[in-house]
């Protein structure tokens, strides 16, 4: 029987999760090890974001368990299929986040706070891919970045970093 933990989101929703799934978070793992995790574990993460975090963790967990159970025969084909499945799942996950940037940034902060390095890198890469190859104005529009420079300041920056702004 798997050990279950109850996670409480910042808006007081309870999530029942297997220990193995949630231990991917170094923060929670430490809380469990320190014995601080009796009863509900309160987290500074909204229920909507926490649901996404758990979706990620379960997918990861699923992957490691299946690999452990594999015997050698026919593993290569199975692994290839699995890789395809994971890619597909990740693409869907990315598309949802691209469409809802509030969740994307909440998730970034949550993965940082919960110490989930794989998710954090995945999200940072996702944002970098969205930014790459775009003009500053496009990036500002995409993320609602307010240009808080005066024209003079902007000119000074372009002059200082002119090296990087050449075509």
């Amino acid at each position: 029987m798997a050990i279950m933990y109850a996670l409480k989101s910042s808006d007081n929703e309870i999530f029942e999760v297997e220990q193995k799934v949630i231990e991917q978070s170094e923060t929670i793992k430490k809380m469990i090890e320190d014995g601080a995790a009796t009863g509900e574990i309160p987290l500074q993460v909204s229920s909507k974001t926490l649901a996404k975090v758990l979706e990620w963790c379960k997918q990861r967990q699923h992957k490691t368990v299946e690999n452990e159970n594999d015997d050698n025969k026919g593993k290569r084909k199975k692994e290839r299929d699995e890789d395809d499945d994971i890619k597909e799942w990740e693409n869907k996950f990315s598309d949802e986040l691209k469409a809802d940037k509030d969740v994307l940034f909440d998730l970034l902060l949550a993965s940082n706070y919960l110490d989930l390095p794989a998710l954090l890198s995945f999200l940072c890469q996702l944002v970098a891919d969205m930014v790459a190859g775009k003009m500053p104005e496009e990036i500002r529009r995409m993320f609602n970045i307010e240009n808080d420079f005066t024209p003079e300041e902007e000119k000074a920056i372009t002059a200082e970093h002119g090296w990087a702004f050449q075509p």
Binding site: C124, Q125, V131, P136
Partner: peptide, 19 residues
């Protein structure tokens, strides 16, 4: 961390976005 996934010149270019 986000900048580390960008080509270096593009990481420099982000300095123009905002303070």
């Amino acid at each position: 961390h986000i900048m580390s996934f960008l080509p270096f010149e593009e990481a420099v270019q982000t300095s123009i976005l905002s303070k």
